[in-house]
Design a binder for these strands. Sequence first.
DNA 1: GGACAAGGTGACCGCACAGTCAACTTATCG
DNA 2: CGATAAGTTGACTGTGCGGTCACCTTGTCC
Lengths: 201, 201
Amino acid sequence: MDPVDRPLRVDAARNRELLITAAEEEFSAKGSEVSVVDITRRAGVAKGTFFRHFATKDDLIAAIVGRHVGALIDVAENLREATDPGEGLLDFLTVAAAQRQQYDVSFLLRAGDDDERVVEVRNRLYEAIGVLVDRARATGAVRDDIGATDVILLMCAPNHVVEYLSSPPPDLWKRYLAIIFDGLRPEGAHPLPGREPVAVQ
Amino acid sequence: MDPVDRPLRVDAARNRELLITAAEEEFSAKGSEVSVVDITRRAGVAKGTFFRHFATKDDLIAAIVGRHVGALIDVAENLREATDPGEGLLDFLTVAAAQRQQYDVSFLLRAGDDDERVVEVRNRLYEAIGVLVDRARATGAVRDDIGATDVILLMCAPNHVVEYLSSPPPDLWKRYLAIIFDGLRPEGAHPLPGREPVAVQ
DNA sequence: GGACAAGGTGACCGCACAGTCAACTTATCG
DNA sequence: CGATAAGTTGACTGTGCGGTCACCTTGTCC
């Protein structure tokens, strides 16, 4: 339908990148309470420019999520071949938490978000995590009564819990990832109530 | 200073209670994104009535936090005498999570909240938790490299993680409390990176 | 270099929000 | 009762938001 996939003019490409970067920085600094003018002010462009590149604010969010979750999917897929699957899963969770420490877009993954692009990339990520969890469980690196959904739900917790501090040390999340991962190990595990929830979304 | 502490007129007392209850229900249903008109509509009173009882929206929030956190402080103080301190700590975390399942006001406890009434009641809660953690650690029920601040930070995680599902089973938090508490036990604990953060706020 | 489409701009719109207030209603008390 | 202070009401204000658009600027291509 589109006549040609004509490339962006150089100034347009630069402004688009400025907007995405500015948005990441704003979301990182202020959480989810960021307005379009906040973003354009940091990017140094006018409001109209924002809406030339992104039809709605949610479009920009989908672009950011695509970028970050795409990177995470790559990490997860590379770790499929890890010789020690338990280490592979822990490595993935570490990379994921470190990424969120810089640009936390995890609130964009919460259920109830109806944007189809976000849902699609989220599902691809969750499939990739499922592979890592299954391998880790098969080798006894994690307890056998947990599944991929459990890991997905717990994945963001190390980053979230440190937000109760007003200025947490930048790598405090490592401490809570270690505690939670110890809870996933088979040694000294107490039986879990209920059953694994069926799926995310 | 006040001339007399004259009691509220009966209709005023009833409306005040209606507003607090309606606010709890709204916060419980929609999270933190609740407007004053949402609350007054559910309470069945006009907007002006809200602002006669609470000077600002934050005043109402402080009243709700006071009520809920006060109840939690009572629970923590009663569990000081528990014969098994490990069970006592787990009982406290269970009651706290169950309470949040109904009315989650944990977002009101996040750092950066400047309301002094909220800060004061929060600190009293954290002191009470500190006693429970110290006793549990002294008897070897929890690993010796964690402290009260760690438990405080992890306390809300079981409720938060289930919010990534669109309609989680109502007691799914029990599963993640069990996993996290297993991570706090001494059996099979791997050494933690970093050190315990100094304090909340 | 000139023509023109692509891109940039900021005043503007409609809306939802927290908070105000003058006019009205009612519980309380002698 | 009747008087009056206490409480209620909803239209109103000001602010900030996401999004629009007519006009202006500039990169691109011959």
